[in-house]
Design a protein around this nucleic acid. Structure first.
Length: 490
RNA sequence: GUCCCCAUCGUCUAGUCCGGCCCAGGACGCGGCCCUUUCAAGGCCGAAACACGGGUUCGAAUCCCGUUGGGGACGCCA
C-alpha cells in the first residue's frame, strides 16, 4: 500500500504469498517472473513473502538446484521474510522436511472418509490410460478402489486418493482471469500420498498453503487446471480457500512454452552474460504487466505501482533484444564505481590479469567504465570493447587498418606524435586543441586526423571520443600503440 | 479425445470493466534525417496492429454469439 492504505487494518488479514519452485534445475525466466510478481505484490501490500522449495520428488530434486535458485533469488534482490533459521538468516521452507505434516492431514481425510487407499499399480494405471486415449475416452481414474475403506492395516496400504463427490461446479474467482468454472464431473480421485508415503504436488501445496496461511496464490496459468482439485481439497479439509491469481506464461519466439531449446533461459546465465539484475527485474516486471506507457521503473516505483489488476491475460513472448536494450539503459545510468566493481570479472574474462587491474586502481577503472558505459549493452560487451585501453597486445581489424592507416595518414600520425611530445601536459583538453589546430592547418576535418589515431590506439574504427581516452591511456601507451601502428602494412 | 485459457503493430503493451475522446497511443526492433571525432547515446520523422464472421447499438478495438488460430492441463511430476 502506498500511504494511508487500508490493506492491513485489523479487519483484513495481512497478505501472505509464496513462491514455490521445484528444485529440478536452475531458476528460469518464467519462474523468476512468478517469484517477482509474488514479491512485488507482498511488498506493495506490506505483506509477507515466503520461499518454499517443493522437493517432494526425490528423483528429480537436487541440492544444487536449491542452491542455484537461492543464488538467483538473491541476485534479483527478491528477499523472503520467513523460514527455518539457517545461520542467523531465513532459509527457505522445504517440503521434504515437512512430511509428517502431510501424512497427518492425509490421516484426517482418511479418518473422515474423504479419502481412501488405492492399490492399483502405476503400470495398471498407465495401461488403462493408454487404452482410454486410444479409444478416445476420458483419462480419469475410474475410482475402482473406492470401496476399500480407509484402514491401511486390513489390506496393505497403497496410495491415498481423495474421493470426489462430483455433482456441482467449482468456480475459481481468479484475480487476473475472472471467474473460471469447472464441472465437478471433470475431476477424478487424484492421489494425495504416493504408496511410498510421499505427498503429491497438489496435496503438499494445499497443506502448506493452509499451514502458512497463504492469502493469495500467484502462479503460472498452467496451474489453472490444478486449482479445482486443490479447492476440493480445501473443502474436504474444511479450511478456507485462498484467492488465486493465475498469470499467463512466458513463451519462446515460437509461441510455445519456454524451454532449454529456446536458449539461455536460466536467470543466472544472464548475469554471466553481463546483465544487471535491475534490468532483468524491470524487463520481467514489464512482461505481462504495465503501468501506462512507462518502460523504466525503479524498484520503489515497481512496488508502488504493482497491482494484480494490471497484470494482463495474454501470454508474452520473451524478447531478448528488448532486455538487452533495457540493460544498456541501466548500464548507461549506473554509477561508475559500481560499474567498475561489476566489470572486474568481465575484464578478467577478456584477458586482463587480476594483478593488472589492481595496479590500475579503482579510480582509473571507474574512469574507464565511465568512458565506455554509454556505448555498451552488456558488461561483457563493455569489458571487451574497453580492452585496448589496458596495457598489452591488441588485435587490429585488418580492414580498418587497410582503409584508415594509409601512407598519408601514417605521416600525419608521425608528426602529431612529435608534437604531442612537446605538449606541456598530456590532457584531453590540450590534445584536443592540438588536434584541432593541426587539422585546420592542413585544411582537414577533425575526423581526418582523429580516425587514424583511433585505429592506431584501438585497432578499430569504433571507440569512445579519443581525447579523454588518450588521457586515460597515458602517454607511454599512446606512443607505443602509435609506433606499432606505424609498422602495420596499410 | 475431454476440459480450460488466450486473441491490438514482428515483439512488449495502452485503450476493453463504465461503448463515442482511437481512421488506435507508447516502447523494443527496423528505415530515414539531425547532432557529431568514429560508434553509441540523444532528438525528430516514417513503415507497421484491433484474427475472421455475425449480431446489439445512432455509434464497437471495446458488449454478445459463433468460427478460426494459438497455448495449457488431463501422472504414485511439479
Amino acid at each position: 500500500m502506498t500511504s494511508g492504505g487500508s490493506a492491513s487494518d485489523a479487519s483484513t488479514p495481512k497478505v501472505r504469498v509464496r513462491f514455490a519452485p521445484s528444485p529440478t534445475g536452475y531458476l528460469h525466466v518464467g519462474g523468476a517472473r512468478t517469484a517477482l510478481y509474488n514479491w512485488l505484490f507482498a511488498r506493495h501490500e506490506n505483506g509477507v513473502f515466503i520461499l518454499r522449495i517443493e522437493d517432494t520428488d526425490p528423483e528429480r530434486s537436487t541440492d544444487e538446484s536449491v542452491a542455484g535458485i537461492l543464488e538467483a533469488m538473491r541476485w534479483l534482490g527478491l528477499d523472503w521474510d520467513e523460514g527455518p533459521e539457517v545461520g542467523g538468516a531465513f532459509g527457505p521452507y522445504r517440503q521434504a522436511e515437512r512430511l509428517d505434516l502431510y501424512r497427518e492431514h492425509a490421516r484426517r481425510l482418511l479418518d473422515g472418509g474423504k479419502a481412501y487407499y488405492c492399490v492399483c499399480t502405476a503400470e495398471e494405471l498407465e495401461a488403462r490410460r493408454k487404452a482410454a486415449l486410444a479409444a478416445g475416452l476420458s483419462l480419469k481414474y475410474d475410482g475402482r478402489c473406492r470401496g476399500r475403506g480407509s484402514c491401511p492395516s486390513a489390506p496393505p496400504g497403497g496410495a491415498v486418493r481423495l474421493q470426489m463427490q462430483g455433482e456441482g461446479v467449482v468456480e475459481i474467482a481468479d484475480l487476473v482471469h475472472g471467474p473460471i468454472r469447472f464441472e465437478d464431473a471433470e475431476l477424478d480421485d487424484f492421489i494425495l500420498l504416493r504408496s511410498d508415503g510421499m505427498p503429491t504436488y497438489n496435496f503438499a501445496v494445499v497443506v502448506d498453503d493452509v499451514l502458512m496461511r497463504i492469502t493469495h496464490v500467484i502462479r503460472g496459468d498452467d496451474h489453472i487446471s490444478n486449482t479445482p482439485r486443490q479447492i476440493k481439497l480445501y473443502e474436504a479439509l474444511g479450511l478456507p480457500v485462498p484467492r488465486f491469481a493465475h498469470i499467463p506464461m512466458i513463451f519462446g519466439p515460437d509461441r510455445s512454452r519456454l524451454s532449454k531449446r529456446h536458449g539461455a533461459m536460466g536467470v543466472m546465465a544472464y548475469q554471466q552474460m553481463g546483465y544487471l539484475p535491475e534490468a532483468m527485474v524491470n524487463y520481467l516486471a514489464r512482461l505481462g504487466w504495465s503501468h501506462g506507457d512507462q518502460e523504466i521503473f525503479t524498484q520503489e516505483e515497481l512496488i508502488g505501482h504493482f497491482t494484480l489488476e494490471k497484470v494482463g491475460r495474454t501470454p508474452a513472448v520473451f524478447d531478448p533484444v528488448k532486455l538487452e536494450w533495457l540493460n544498456g539503459q541501466y548500464i548507461k545510468r549506473a554509477v561508475p564505481d559500481r560499474l567498475a566493481a561489476l566489470l572486474k570479472p568481465f575484464w578478467e574474462a577478456s584477458g586482463m590479469s587480476r594483478e593488472g587491474l589492481e595496479r590500475r586502481g579503482d579510480a582509473w577503472l571507474q574512469a574507464v567504465a565511465g568512458l565506455f558505459q554509454e556505448r555498451a549493452r552488456t558488461l561483457s560487451e563493455l569489458a571487451s570493447s574497453s580492452q585496448f585501453v589496458f596495457e598489452g597486445k591488441i588485435e587490429r581489424d585488418e580492414a580498418a587498418v587497410h582503409k584508415i592507416l594509409t601512407q598519408e595518414a601514417k605521416d600525419r600520425l608521425r608528426t602529431l606524435l612529435q608534437e604531442i611530445e612537446t605538449l606541456p601536459s598530456f590532457t584531453a583538453a590540450a590534445l584536443e586543441s592540438l588536434f584541432r589546430t593541426r587539422a585546420a592547418a592542413l585544411g582537414l576535418k577533425l575526423v581526418d586526423v582523429a580516425q587514424p589515431f583511433r585505429v592506431a590506439l584501438s585497432g578499430k574504427t569504433v571507440s569512445p571520443p579519443i581525447f579523454p581516452m588518450m588521457e586515460l591511456m597515458g602517454w607511454n601507451l599512446v606512443r607505443r600503440r602509435v609506433e606499432e601502428a606505424l609498422k602495420e602494412d596499410g
